[in-house]
Design a protein around this nucleic acid. Sequence first.
DNA 1: GCCTTTTGAATTGTATACATATCATAATAT
DNA 2: ATATTATGATATGTATACAATTCAAAAGGC
Lengths: 224, 224
Amino acid sequence: MSAPRSADQIHASLSAQIVAGQLRPGDPLAEAALADRFNMSRTPVREALQRMAAEGLVERGPRRAFIVRRMTPTDLGHMFEALGEIEALCARLAAQRMTPIARAQLTEILAVECRTHDDYAALNRRFHEALRLGAGNQVLSDLLADLNRRTLPWRNAQFHTSNGRMDSSRQEHHAILQAIIAQDGDKAAALMRDHMAGSLAVVLAMIAPRETTGNPPPSRGVTP
Amino acid sequence: MSAPRSADQIHASLSAQIVAGQLRPGDPLAEAALADRFNMSRTPVREALQRMAAEGLVERGPRRAFIVRRMTPTDLGHMFEALGEIEALCARLAAQRMTPIARAQLTEILAVECRTHDDYAALNRRFHEALRLGAGNQVLSDLLADLNRRTLPWRNAQFHTSNGRMDSSRQEHHAILQAIIAQDGDKAAALMRDHMAGSLAVVLAMIAPRETTGNPPPSRGVTP
DNA sequence: GCCTTTTGAATTGTATACATATCATAATAT
DNA sequence: ATATTATGATATGTATACAATTCAAAAGGC
């Protein structure tokens, strides 16, 4: 059996709280307080925080204390651009490389009916995941997963936006699917770029007015 | 003054030894031995190793001991493909965004004469660095820096290859420069993709015959 | 003879004590 | 009154002791 390592539990718990918005950018992460809260010593807490720092989820604040990572508007723009471009790159590779079977599975994913936001979030996740797998590059897939995790605290803001976004997002997914079935890599990439830009513009518009290095509106639900 | 932190020193030292080939893939990194070698306790050694693990330079071996990261041939292919594609992406963005001044500086970099391999390695580094800056995206720039560090142990093998590669690499650089001056993003990206593929094919050809999860030939000099 | 079980050593994971740096507060001199 | 310096508290950085786990080797049963 795999031994339960304390540091891993802390890492998972803190990461989840950060991406869920329960811990917000700028919040302090004092070692002693966390050790007390998890009923553990500072050592595994430090390990978890150091790993999260390397992953870009937390940063150093005053007194070299760890704080939940803040983002300048410029940082957010760069991160979302990188996310969109690499996702577009994966779409192009997927169009070139997916097997007929994989294309059929991708079609199946989009054929599922869903009404609630949670349903659609799950569908959306499956769609993008299938595309990442279809690109056939583990490194790019890992990069996307990382960027997704790091932007999740900010993307969750999309929940409150119009339901219309859900419908247009779905149409864009189908357009991308058609391009992939046609094995038109450039078109798939261009469509995916627009798709990501559209969904992320909503986030930026919601975040820009607020102070950006501070706290994004806490909420649940993801609709890229 | 900034306090000298032991963990940072160890991290820098070990990272340098790994990318330089003095520590080779699969080599064990026992905590006690390293602590003894650096005349420090295990705590900062563990911190350095954990950060390097998150950065992808080391991995876990038997007994959960840290070892220098190994790579399957598939992993290497994925990593080099990701490197080439993102570099191409940056070239396209740079073509769209570089100011006339930045373009002039890029031209200057390529105008410098150089005869030794070290000279050319420096020129090459400056060229790619200028392009990353020109893309104007810190996140993509960081991603490239990471991928470069992680592939450095394997790319160093290129040193022994023919001098002809240096000349053709130089010609490819000039072609990319022309595309950027013409602000032709797609062409710059395509040229960069070919450029990276060409230089990395040399590495793969040299590595493929050997056992790939083991050790790359140790050497110095980089010529992407 | 081969497989299973047990036992042991060696290494990593965790806890705690101590050292050190950083920031805030207050006191003092100008 | 303001600026500067001293001083103290609080949090992080490091060292060391202990616990737990893992792998290997040897002993025993089939």
